[in-house]
Amino acid sequence: MAARFLHNKTAVATVTIVLVIAIIGIFAPFIAPNDPFKADIMNKYAPYSAQYPLGTDNLGRCILSRLIYGIRPTLGLAVLTMLGTLGLGGLMGLLAGYFRGMTEEIIMRVVDVMLSFPSQIMVFAVVALLGINVQNVILANVFIKWAWYARMIRTGVMQYRDKNFIQFSRCIGTPERFILIRHLMPSIASDLVVLASLDIGWAIINISTLSFLGLGVQAPTPEWGAMLNEAKNVLTSNPTQMIAPGIAIVVLVSAFNLMGDALRDILDPKEVNA
């Protein structure tokens, strides 16, 4: 597996990019050249310089520092969203696929309905009605996404639940919990990893969109979507302010998308035997 991973250039490159971005985010206070909140109003709209490598925004704050601090909410919230989605969707999918019968019928009917929900509009509705804060943004995104995972994981579980190794395990009296966690979970893990890394990109875009609309992370917290919202207000006077946060989003999302594709190639069982 490790050799296959190192062999795949896209995988190595994208994982490196994501890790570097994450590390920069974690060590933001040591790396950022300036305080992301400190407004230097005399120097607003400053061009690129040694003191402000990416210039300053409409309040004279260092754009690079804000970008670096912005990694934390952007990436952190996306990861939290995916963990929530995987947790809820995974649980429902496992239960439906393994226990069948009534459990499955109920869960899958709910999933059917959730999949026909107009998702983007429901996100707005959930955030609007529950109140605008970060916690509700995550809730809303998990709410509209879990059903996809439930269905996917159920299909995966159904492929494995009647395989010999699981039947044998059941035969010798292994508890259901053990079968679910130690036999079924590892079998479907690779599918999940691929799907999750593709969808983190989706989550990043969704969260930054909500912040851009003023429904997510609130100013003055540096978040890429919120930074673009501020840039929008000064679009005519300082059009360059929107470039850096936008490119940051594109790089991170593309890295996750390409990583998902590469991981799929690596983890594809058909290739392993070849």
Binding site: G201, L228, K232, I249, L252
Partner: peptide
């Protein structure tokens, strides 16, 4: 493959 990573509202800002 590249445009997929772009938030639509950002494309809008660039076009404006």
């Amino acid at each position: 493959a590249f445009t997929q990573g772009m938030p639509v509202f950002w494309i809008g800002l660039i076009l404006i």
